[in-house]
Simulated assay, not measured.
Amino acid sequence: MHRNSYSLAALAAAAVPGLVPVRTTPIATPTEDLDVAGVVGEQGRRVMVLSPSSTASGVRLEKDLKVADALTGTPLHGVIPPVLGFVKLSEGGRAAVTEAPVGRPLMLEDLQESPDLARSMGQVLARIHTVPRYAAEAAGVESFTPEALLAEHRERVLEAKEGGHLPAAVAQRWEALLEDEELWHVTPQFIHGDLSEESMFHAEERISALRDWSSSRVADAATDLAWLISTLEPERFDELYAAYRQELPTEVHPRLVERAQALGEFAVAEWLAHGLETGDESIVSDARGMIADLDADLAQLARDEAERTYDALSSRDEQP
């Protein structure tokens, strides 16, 4: 069941001894079945309360908190709000209260406008991807082999193609990417798995908090970069990626950025499948529009390449 801000404040008071709520503030969440609010106490203390409104969201919340707890012993501890308490819900499950994230929710415009913030994002991503596997396994996250990851991508693209949703040029590009064996030489690493504006906070030109670890797993580091490379301006992404590489203790795969770009494209097929499965025509229309845009981009690239080839041949023929 969903709860309003007053009910969430009451849950916070029950979970945290001595907390007397004065007011609440809404906080966006990536999922519709998780109620989240910021609560300000009498002495100005700020906490965040998270209450699942379904069994599925309760399972995700428990995984989120278990992973976050496992990460408190890693270099990420400074960006993970600590849990302050729990309270049982009448319908089953429990709500959780954490310290309020420092700063304010991150918007893409913030990253676009701030080189320092982009570099901080790159540093935090590197720290995520260097979390030891034993810490991830202690939190019970799933681990995927490179073969399993590639099979998942193949299935996603095949479904879109067989459903008649892919123009020929897009289908050919995606199939060529999937056949490029070197591109998919992945060393699985711990990843967040579902980065979004709702999962990050920032303050003073740095990433100050990360939340929602329910999709974390040991998989392809390119997954966490895919969203950023597909949304940020190239110059800003380059700054983020340079900071990412500098923070890592080891060299990255030489084609990591290329793979992230591919995963960003494949995500459109996943978005389309989600829209079709849920019968949400707005999602289906959005995904089809993105596929059409990619098709147009590929057509323009083909024209540009043809013009370059023609110019080169013409120049050679004109030479004495």
Rank of each mutant, 00 (worst) to 15 (best):
121 M>Y: 12
121 M>V: 06
121 M>K: 10
123 Q>G: 15
123 Q>C: 14
124 V>A: 05
124 V>Q: 06
126 A>C: 10
127 R>G: 02
127 R>T: 02
128 I>E: 07
128 I>N: 06
130 T>Y: 08
130 T>D: 07
130 T>M: 11
130 T>S: 13
130 T>E: 12
132 P>I: 02
133 R>M: 12
133 R>T: 03
135 A>F: 10
135 A>D: 05
135 A>M: 08
136 A>K: 02
136 A>R: 04
137 E>G: 00
138 A>F: 03
138 A>L: 09
138 A>M: 01
138 A>K: 09
138 A>P: 03
139 A>T: 01
141 V>C: 03
141 V>L: 02
142 E>S: 09
142 E>Q: 08
144 F>L: 13
145 T>H: 02
145 T>K: 09
146 P>Y: 04
150 L>R: 14
150 L>Q: 08
151 A>T: 05
152 E>G: 01
155 E>K: 00
156 R>S: 13
159 E>M: 13
159 E>S: 00
159 E>Y: 09
160 A>H: 10
160 A>S: 15
161 K>E: 14
161 K>W: 11
162 E>F: 10
163 G>A: 05
163 G>H: 08
164 G>Y: 07
164 G>M: 10
166 L>W: 07
167 P>G: 03
167 P>C: 06
167 P>R: 00
169 A>F: 05
169 A>K: 13
169 A>M: 12
170 V>I: 03
170 V>E: 00
170 V>C: 04
171 A>V: 10
172 Q>A: 15
173 R>P: 01
173 R>G: 00
173 R>D: 14
174 W>P: 03
176 A>I: 05
177 L>H: 05
177 L>V: 13
177 L>D: 13
178 L>I: 00
180 D>F: 10
180 D>H: 12
180 D>W: 08
181 E>L: 07
182 E>K: 13
185 H>M: 12
186 V>Y: 03
186 V>C: 03
187 T>F: 12
187 T>P: 03
188 P>E: 11
189 Q>D: 12
190 F>M: 11
190 F>K: 03
190 F>P: 00
190 F>Y: 12
191 I>R: 01
192 H>M: 08
193 G>C: 10
193 G>L: 01
194 D>H: 04
195 L>D: 03
195 L>K: 07
196 S>M: 07
197 E>D: 11
197 E>Q: 12
197 E>I: 05
198 E>S: 13
198 E>T: 05
199 S>M: 09
199 S>E: 03
199 S>P: 01
199 S>F: 01
200 M>F: 10
201 F>G: 01
201 F>C: 00
202 H>A: 04
204 E>A: 14
204 E>R: 10
205 E>W: 06
205 E>H: 12
205 E>R: 13
205 E>P: 09
206 R>P: 09
207 I>R: 04
207 I>Y: 05
208 S>M: 06
208 S>F: 09
208 S>R: 01
